[in-house]
Design a protein around this nucleic acid. Structure first.
Length: 906
DNA sequence: GAAGAAGTTGAAGAT
DNA sequence: GATCTTCAACTTCTT
């Protein structure tokens, strides 16, 4: 008895329908054997059964498999799946449920085995994402641990493990009885008591005692220390419904945490959240949110704004045009599939003989390249790996020359670089290229999932690039567009492309005097249209400009002028000096591995008790992508900084330029970074680095992280008493305030006297300027007049507080890998009235380690501390495994946070 | 090893 | 307006 009509077509059995009688025979043989053998759950490999299922969106290229809960069936998902129209959807009935009553009895193992077969035969590319609820979640975990080859990522909810004491003969009777009793309660009453959750009735004819026994056995904890599950490799998001109320419908968050910790042994990115407003069957309470959360988990993962996307697309188009210029028949062919899965197929399809690519320093790229090289060798393809072109030297080589240690100063980098040898000159641009040959392809496409894709908030429509096949919507392998990617248009005026930067470079180099005497500290952060520097950084990042080409072109001019006895500038302030800084940060990253990007566990990053510190998973030693809100006021300050509404026009102008255009001058980065950290808010540099990571068109992980450590005086730089003023520093470069007027237009009518401190302007000046100064930035207009906020604090007071805080933190002298940082006992060394969250032993967490699941984590933390205690400043060995996990940090935000926001934290 | 100088890019006041 | 000194005080490099 179903109360809601099915949205799905009648079930279709497998293509082996013709063999149905044979299958039934096999099934009954299996059932007989199973029943007679009692606990034996093993299946014969030759047992060919396909469970009934429905499917939707067959044209889509990535599959999600939905697994329903106890006594339910595939129809339980009918409100969620319409919100996931981009995905191919598979909806099976579990054994013993729905139309699968002939297959059984139900067990985790049997279910997982049958679902794995279903995925292999019917999912796109033989793999699927898995979404599961309640009993289905237990099945999903079994599926992911035993049949890891078919599972991409998982989104599971509703884990409730019954105590081992429930392992009694009587418990299944209780379940059987409760299902019958519940059926007497009118459904409208149930829905009312469950906040409007669209509950469906249960078909009591399926609630049999054997099924109740099988379910109880699945969801009841093993007695003693029995394993709950084996670690699984799929990145998994586990949600606990937190709402109880009249009906006891909440999940067990502690069980979710336990499973999360098992899952993390297989994949460090596995997470668990509690949603306080949702009930156990929240797929029917808020199906839109449920679907949104699934989507967030799968595709919206990277902090990449649409401006950086546009820049990359520009660069790709330019390369394509350059290729066509050399050979009218050729161009850049963009194939929509990850290299790891695509290339092995392509080697065969196109009879590839050689594969050439550039060495990449990012850990995830190293892992990818290793896989590609292996598959190429297997296919008899010759692989040629070109040298790194993003840097001057090979970062690994320089690290070795520096004794395996990070380069923490320019002189160290130069000394180690000299040992490696002269900076190689780049090879010449080719003058001709062979044609592409036959580019017809007849292979199946696999959508990329394991790599970061894009940030959901920048999308305004469905992605159409991958869903239209390997060759793209036009079928011609063309470079994608933002529209195709479903992204909003870029707001940046800065465009990419090799020919653009090469032309710009020539115009700069033509002025030999300028080139040879360039000094970075003399360029203005307040200049716009044009900027005082020429934005080579995003081109260097995307490979549109070779660092070594740039270096040698400049160096040739400098050398010529030296011979002519003319003045030249030298590193670190000269043009080539700028390139040296990039190499310094790359080598530091190469040496420190995962810990470079965070304070916790970082042997070279000073520990400062910042506000809004990162949460850390003490088992892996990695930041989770979330942070502690130790002080609501500081959270508000952080949001105002990010939004350009601090009430300090200089800071706000820079932050608005960054958000709008994706680029700000290096000294402007100094000003806002100092303000957020040691010279204003006393908020963790990691918060600021994350914002830059999302917005900068030239974001380079190594440089961004390194510069934030520099400015916060946690590494590379230590003169914290040299502090930037949000008023004086702006005035020094732009006395009249044109830069502020451009980016904070509500202040454009103010005179230069008050442009940097509008709250000091007399009321008549403000009236004349047409602006109201009040509030915290939440109000934009008042009676048709723009509102600009008051300063969020007295800067001089705050600078003094920060200065004392820094002085004290330096005196305490901890680094990120100090045992006291690792175990949270650093608080004993700071006064309760200090600048940061130093609440003494009695206070809340407020530090680098999150103690929310302290009992679970204690053992692991002690081990970590013990290991570190042996050497205070040991450099963590950058094992490939650790490095891989560490680099995923960059992409780890965004998962579910966007869907839940504050609800999770409340 | 000790001492002094230098360190990509400060602010504020005096001369 | 340009240059110098002081502020209070850190690490690294050179001698």
């Amino acid at each position: 008895m179903r109360l809601l009509p099915s949205r799905y077509p009648e079930s279709t059995y497998s293509p082996r329908r013709g063999k149905m009688n044979q299958v039934r025979q096999k099934v009954s043989q299996y059932v007989m054997r199973h029943v007679t053998n009692g606990a034996a759950h093993a299946l014969d490999d030759d047992l060919q059964i396909t469970i009934p299922f429905s499917e939707a969106n067959k044209e889509a290229t990535a599959t999600i498999l939905f697994i329903h809960g106890a006594f339910g069936d595939r129809n339980d998902w009918d409100q969620v799946t319409p919100n996931l129209s981009k995905y191919h959807i598979l909806l099976p009935d579990l054994p013993g449920h729905g139309q699968t009553d002939r297959i059984g009895p139900f067990s985790k193992k049997l279910s997982a085995r049958l679902l794995a077969d279903l995925i292999r035969q019917h999912a796109k590319g033989g793999r699927a994402h898995v979404v599961a609820l309640s009993l289905g979640a237990f099945v999903a975990i079994e599926l992911a641990s035993v049949h890891s080859d078919v599972v991409n990522e998982m989104f599971i909810s509703g884990l409730k493990v019954m105590p081992a004491a429930y392992r009694t003969a009587i418990a299944p009777y209780g379940l059987w009885l409760s299902q019958r009793l519940e059926s007497y309660i009118p459904l409208p009453l149930v829905r009312w008591a469950m906040d409007g959750t669209d509950m469906q009735g249960v078909d009591l004819s399926r609630v049999t005692l054997p099924l109740c026994r099988a379910i109880m056995s699945t969801i009841t904890a093993e007695s003693g220390d029995g394993e709950w599950a084996q670690p699984w490799a799929a990145r998994t998001c586990i949600i606990s419904a937190g709402k109880a109320g009249i009906v006891p419908s909440a999940d067990h968050p502690e069980d979710a945490v336990k499973y999360r910790d098992i899952g993390r042994k297989g994949n460090a990115e596995t997470v668990a959240y509690t949603h306080p407003l949702m009930r156990h069957p929240w797929n029917r309470q808020d199906p839109v949110l449920f679907a949104r959360a699934c989507r967030c988990h799968y595709v919206y993962r990277a902090r990449v704004g649409n401006n950086r996307w546009q820049f990359l697309i520009d660069c790709m188009n330019d390369v394509s045009r350059s290729i066509t210029n050399l050979n009218a028949e050729s161009k850049l062919f963009v194939l929509r599939e990850p290299a790891v899965t695509l290339l092995p197929k392509l080697f065969r399809a196109w009879n590839i003989t050689h594969l050439v690519f550039e060495k990449d320093t990012d850990a995830y790229a190293k892992e990818r390249d290793k896989q590609v090289i292996e598959s190429a060798e297997k296919a008899g393809v010759k692989v040629i790996v070109g040298p790194q072109s993003r840097t001057l030297w090979d970062s690994d080589e320089v690290m070795k020359a520096n004794g395996g240690k990070p380069t923490m100063s320019i002189s160290q980098l130069q000394a180690a670089g000299a040992k490696v040898g002269a900076i190689a000159r780049p090879v010449e641009t080719p003058t001709n290229l062979p044609g592409p040959g036959d580019v017809e392809l007849d292979i199946d496409q696999e959508r990329p999932e394991s790599k970061p894709d894009i940030n959901g908030k920048y999308r305004e429509s469905d992605e159409k690039t991958y869903s239209s096949g390997i060759a793209g919507p036009q079928g011609d392998y063309s470079v994608p567009t933002l529209v195709e990617l479903g992204m909003k248009p870029a707001t940046t005026p800065h465009r990419g492309g090799e020919s653009l930067i090469l032309a710009r470079l020539e115009s700069i180099l033509a002025d030999e005097d300028y080139t040879a005497t360039f000094e970075k500290p003399k360029t203005s952060p307040a200049a716009f249209e044009p900027q005082s520097t020429f934005l080579t950084s995003p081109f260097l990042h995307f490979g549109a400009l070779s660092a070594r080409y740039f270096y040698h072109r400049v160096e040739d001019i400098v050398e010529k002028r030296r011979k002519e006895k003319k003045a030249v500038s030298t590193p670190p302030t000269s043009l080539t000096g700028q390139l040296l800084f990039r190499d310094m940060y790359f080598v530091a990253q190469a040496a420190l591995g995962y810990s470079f990007g965070q304070t916790y566990g970082n042997s070279h990053c000073r520990f400062i008790p910042w506000h809004l510190p990162s949460k850390v998973d003490v088992k892996t030693g990695l930041v989770t992508g979330e942070y502690e809100v130790d002080d609501e006021g500081k959270e508000k300050e952080f949001q105002r900084w990010r939004d350009g509404k601090t009430g300090f026009p200089w800071i706000d102008a820079i932050m608005r330029q960054l958000k709008q255009e994706g680029w700000i001058h290096h000294l402007a980065r100094h000003a806002v970074a100092c303000f957020l950290t040691r010279g204003g808010c006393y908020i963790s540099w990691e918060r600021g680095a994350e914002v830059f990571e999302e917005w900068l068109v030239d974001h380079e992980a190594a440089c961004n992280i390194g510069n934030w450590q520099w400015l916060s005086c946690t590494a590379f730089y230590a003169m914290f008493y040299r502090c930037y003023s949000p008023v004086a520093f702006g005035k020094k470069w732009d006395d009249t305030g044109e830069f502020v007027r451009k980016y904070v237009p509500e202040l454009k009518g103010l005179s230069k006297k008050y442009i940097y401190e509008p709250h000091k302007a007399p009321i008549q000046d403000l009236k004349k300027a047409g602006v109201v100064i009040r509030g915290d930035g939440s109000e934009e207009m008042s009676e048709g007049v723009p509102v600009y906020p008051k300063p969020m604090f007295d800067f001089n007071v705050q600078r003094e507080i920060c200065m004392q805080g820094m002085k004290n933190a330096y005196r305490v002298g901890l680094h990120g890998n100090d045992p006291k940082v690792l175990d949270g006992s650093w608080k004993e060394l700071f006064a309760d009235d200090g600048a940061g969250p130093t609440e003494g032993k009695e206070g809340g967490p407020g530090g680098m380690a999150s103690f929310e699941d302290a009992d679970e984590a204690d053992g692991a933390r002690e081990e970590l501390v013990k290991a570190k205690r042996t050497s205070k400043r040991n450099v963590p060995k950058a094992s490939p495994e650790a490095a891989r996990k560490g680099h995923k940090r960059e992409h780890s935000q965004g998962t579910i946070d966007g869907a839940f926001g504050k609800k999770v934290k409340s």
